[in-house]
Amino acid sequence: MQALVVDDSSAMRRIQQKALESLGWQVRCAANGREALVTLDSMPVCDLVLTDWHMPEMDGIELCAQLRRDARYLKLRIVMVTSDAVLDSVETALAAGANDFLMKPFSAEALSERIAGIFGG
């Protein structure tokens, strides 16, 4: 299974990449929404995008919206990751096309449980 981690913090990218790899995922990374679109274009297949919300150039919400307008990514699962621990943000993320939502900070277990929930593990 292929995943793309999108976050403007290189430390956060590394942590999430490591967590996903330990679950058996192959992981690519991007530093913002615009870079994510370019990376996705070069990936033959991608099953999961784990994206931060607040990023320069293009944020996670705009990335979701763009992906959901593209027929190639209809089956792609998107999890929004943010430190905004408010229900309004959850609603906004789902409305933009995210499948699920994780609030920072989160444990490797929480990520693993979330992915199991999405992919029926």
């Binding site: 229900l87 959850v90 993320a93 609030m103 444990s107 277990e109 929480a110 449980e113």
Partner: peptide, 25 residues
């Protein structure tokens, strides 16, 4: 707490069954 709802609760369920109380749900 936010850490507790992160554990196993999908966003759609969080929205449907919980209300916000400052930093908790």
């Amino acid at each position: 707490s936010m850490l507790e709802v992160n554990r196993g609760l999908v966003a759609t369920r969080l929205l449907r069954h919980f209300t916000q109380e400052s930093g908790s749900f």
